[in-house]
Amino acid sequence: MVRQFNKLLRAYGIQQAKELLLKEKSHDCPDDNLICGFVDDTLSDEERAVVESHIATCDYCPHHVADLFKAIFQQDINSGHKIKFDKKRRFTMPNEIKCSKCQFINSVESKYCSQCGKPLEESPSIIFCWKCNKIVNFGNIYCNHCGVKLVADKKDAKKELYEAVKKWLPETMRENKWLVAAIVTILVSFAFPAVFIQFCIAAGIFGGMWIFDSVRRDMLIKLYRAWKSGDKEKIEIITAELKKKISEDGRSAKEKLDSFTDKFRDRFTKK
C-alpha cells in the first residue's frame, strides 16, 4: 500500500516538473532581495518567518528557492561525485565535466556523455585550490591567488621530498656523527671478511662513543659517584633529572618527525 502511494506521489511530481516551468511570479511573492537573504541565511528572524510562511502557500517560490540553493551550494549536491585525491591532483570540487571524446560539456551529475554516450572521466572545468580554497580555472598549472602549483607530476613530488630530506639530513648527521660512523664501519666490514672482528670492535667503540658523547655522559658519571658514596637522596634527584632529559629528547624528536610527516600529509589529504 505504501508502495502504491509512493508511485502516486512520484507520478504527480513528474507532472509538476513540467508545469513549474510555465509558472510565473505573482504579486504577493516577496522581493528577490528577501529570497536571496533566505538562501544566504542573513535575514532577521521576523523577515525569515515572513518568507517561510509565504513559501508554504506559493506555487512558484519553493521552485525558485530550490533552484537558487542548488546553484549556490553545487558542491553539496554533488557530494556523491567528489574527486578522489591522487598525488597528481591538488584541487577540490568539480563543476562540469568535459567529454574527452567529443568535447561536449555535461553536468557533474551525469556519468555518461549525453552526446556520444561515452562514460565520463572525472575532469571538472572549475576547481578549488588545495591551499587557499579559492576558485581557479581548470587547466591552470599555478594558483592565481597564492601561487601554489596545482598539478603535480611525479617529478615534482620527488623533488619536494628530496629538498625536505636535504634540509633534514645534515642536522641529524651532525648531532649523531658517532652513530653514523658505527653504521658505516659495520657496512664496510662485510667487504673485508678477513678483518671482520676488528671492524666489529671498532663499531662497538663508536657505539659507545655515541652513547657517552651526548650530555647524558655527565649525568651517568654523577650517578656513578652518587651510587658509590651511597646517598639515596642524591641518587633520586639525579635519576629524576635523567628521566626528564630523556623524555624531552624523545618529545623533541617526535615533534620533528610529526612536522615532517604533516607537511606531506597536508599536500595530499587536505580538503
Partner: peptide, 14 residues
C-alpha cells in the same frame, strides 16, 4: 544588501 552579491547575481541568472 540583504544578501551577498554573488547570490543576488545568481538570482538574476536563474
Amino acid at each position: 544588501g540583504k544578501s551577498t552579491l554573488s547570490t543576488w547575481l545568481n538570482c538574476i541568472a536563474t
